[in-house]
Write a protein that binds this DNA or RNA. Sequence first.
DNA 1: AATTAATTCGGACAACCGTTTTAATTGATT
DNA 2: AATCAATTAAAACGGTTGTCCGAATTAATT
Lengths: 192, 192
Amino acid sequence: MHYDKQEVHQSQRILNAAFDHISKKGYANVSLREIADEAGVVLSQLNYYYKNKEGLLVEVIRMTIKKYIVEVERILMIGSTAKEKMNNLIRYFQDMLRENPNLFRLLFDLTSMAMWSESFRNLLNELFDNVAQLIEDNILNIATPEFRLSGYTSHTAARMLFGALFGTSIQVLLNSDEKELPEALSVIGSMF
Amino acid sequence: MHYDKQEVHQSQRILNAAFDHISKKGYANVSLREIADEAGVVLSQLNYYYKNKEGLLVEVIRMTIKKYIVEVERILMIGSTAKEKMNNLIRYFQDMLRENPNLFRLLFDLTSMAMWSESFRNLLNELFDNVAQLIEDNILNIATPEFRLSGYTSHTAARMLFGALFGTSIQVLLNSDEKELPEALSVIGSMF
DNA sequence: AATTAATTCGGACAACCGTTTTAATTGATT
DNA sequence: AATCAATTAAAACGGTTGTCCGAATTAATT
């Protein structure tokens, strides 16, 4: 393929525009026409490259999830003790919520769609499984035995820890008035 | 007003039908016509009583939130120690997730809409504030001082505890395969 | 009983949506 | 240079949606 124009390929421009708009306004509130306009592309091209609106969203989500998991993996490589790693993860969440909340918005939006659509549910469960597994392997399995949140498997405990991160982040994202709310995430670290 | 028919008032039938359908299929996936049909009412009546689709949803949510908060209040009156009350709250979440998940679905759906609409955001923040406050007053403020999740205000800690309940519940709701996932909620109790 | 107000009903409208179709253009292959 | 496939473009289609309006019916008030 020649690259006569130094521009990005149309399919990629569409993907980027879709991410921008969806993470800013929500999947249900964005039309394919808006995305096409922002991408500088004719409407029918969206169907040409991604068949469906759902197909487009799936691709956006795949891309986002991949980026997200890689970043979490990178974060969890830093530090040595369980407490250290947990605090790094918490700080990563706090930073993202402040500087790049759109990524979180997209994931939360996906969460609500997963409630009503099985294909989205599978996609999201895969993400949840992965992140929880990362927490289990990199944090809980190196924690001192006397910690281990008494009596529960590290698998189950990891689910709860991720849930705490997730549920607290939602509150931070939705309530921009309470300036000290991001501190609630730090409380998770005091479990260790 | 005479009550010629022993039936419920139309406005109430609409509200009930709206709750049923929205909590089953999601707000964005439900049309006013479906709700009108299930309520046994003509379409235009929805606008007559609730003006907008948004107005109808707001009323459904107000009703739901009220019921929800009253129940949480009732739960937190049982038991004496902080640990006991926390475990009761956890068990309440587990029971609801198993037997009446539609209530949770509606709240999660509202959460995603709150991301993109300010009026919904205010509604939801009010709920979050209330529940977190209940946790703070009824659990954290009677916990032994040496607990208190070192160094943080009970207000902040309550936010995190609610976040843990919320975030873990979402996982339970979305992943019906892992039968032991509801156990992850119990892990929260082991903090006390 | 007559008048007024509140409710119920049926239908229509205008706008928007995702998708499809068909044609024009460009690139690659022989 | 000719042929074929891939891409880009433009327009239209069918369907659904929330909202609105005017008339019919019922209830309340005088």
